[in-house]
Structures are given as structure tokens and as C-alpha cells.
Amino acid sequence: MEHPILFISIILEKLGLPIPHGPVGHGFLEQICAPYMTYTWFTMIFLVVVGKMTLGNLEMVPGKGQNFWEILIGGMENFFLENMGRELTDKLFPMIATFALYIAVANLIGLIPGFMSPTSSINTTLALTIIVWVTHHVIGLRANGIGYVKHFLGPMPILIPLMLPIELISNFARLLSLSIRLFGNIMAKETLLGILFMLAGAFFAPLPIMVLGVLVSLVQAMVFVLLTVVYITQANEHAH
């Protein structure tokens, strides 16, 4: 998908670095300079710099910036506590909260002209999903030991030949649905915005889609985190 203007790509091109013209480049350097990579770095730098600026010196009586983060992080921690319990929350809070912040910011910067969402590339979302998928199996194995296999065997022994393929397929479907849902929603938003901008940008045609885009971005970030929490909780439980 060609974006109208991507300012990081233009800057890199002026610096003499190779910018891929297809979705993915050929050489190593070209792959690193692909737009979804550069905007991933941009999102990371944005989060680190904003965090450093607002939380550089913590105070007992919080100011504006610290208040915002306290509400956000506190809300997320309460949500995780309700669903996962104390122990898992302490273990996994950094990872899942980082995913939430990263996905939300990455979805939302696509609404600003000159930026693109890194999550509108299947590479980014699949990477996130594989991390979550492997993590929930590792958590399950560590919590239940070899008994984790019982999760995939169904309620009674006689049904094993029937239930094992069904459980395995629905487990692999998580990998597919989690990655493609995020990718599809965000790419649809980006493509629609690009097309409307080209067709009737002077008449503010993309504005209604931008309003919907804010909703979609936040909902998709929330869905990703919610499903991560649900999967990890299910893997941690004992088999019924």
C-alpha cells in the first residue's frame, strides 16, 4: 500500500539510505528502512521520551503528567488483577502493559497525516501474536507441568481422538485470528483514509473515518490485551 507522504521515509531517502518501494525490501538495510520498521522505532522512541519527560522526577503530590500515567497504569493493573490474580499480574504486567501502550500508540499515529501505523503490516502483528502465543503455553506448562496436556484432551478419555484435533485447531486459530484481526482492522483504516484523502481531501472527506479510526484503534488495542489476559488465565488454570 502506497502512502501519500511518509516523512521518516523522505528524511531517510534524503540521507541516502535505500527505501523499499514494495511492501518489503530486498537487502538487509532496505528491510530495516521499510516504513513499518522506522515507524515502530518512532513509536518506541515516542513512548520512551514521553515517559522520561513526564516521569523524570516522581513526586509525592503528582503533577499533570504523573497523574495521567498513574490513572492509566493503575487502571490497567486493576483490570489485570481482576482477571489474572496477584501472582500472574506481578509476573506479566510489564509485558502486557507494554503491548497495550505500544499497540494503542501505534494504531493512533496512523491518523496523523505523514505517519503510518506499524500495526498495519502483518509482520508487526504476527510478531506480537507469536510472543503472546508462546508465552501462554510457557505459563501453562510451568503452572500445570505435564498435566497441561489435559487441556487438549477434552472431558473424557473416550473422546480423545475427536477432541484432540478440535482443540489443536482452535488453539492454532488463536494465532491466526489474533494477528489478522489487528492487522486487518488497522490496514483497512489506513487504506480507507489514504483513498479518501486522495479523492476528496480538500473537502475533509476523511474526517468521519478518522473519528471511527480513533474508536477502532482503541478497541483493537483493548481486544488484543483482553484476549492475551484471557488466554493466559485459561492456560494457568487446571484442566477441568
Binding site: 482452535s170 486459530a173 489478522i180 481486544v223
Partner: peptide, 24 residues
Amino acid sequence: VHLLGNYGHIGFTFVAAIFIGMGL
């Protein structure tokens, strides 16, 4: 938003399961 989060992924999960089974 809560309802969308809880139920919005039903369709996609359903389709993904069918695709994986048939692809296999």
C-alpha cells in the same frame, strides 16, 4: 467498548478455525 471487546472477535475466530482445519 466492553461489548465490542468481548464479542467483536467471535466472527474472526470462527473463520480462522475453519480455514486452519480445511487448510490442513
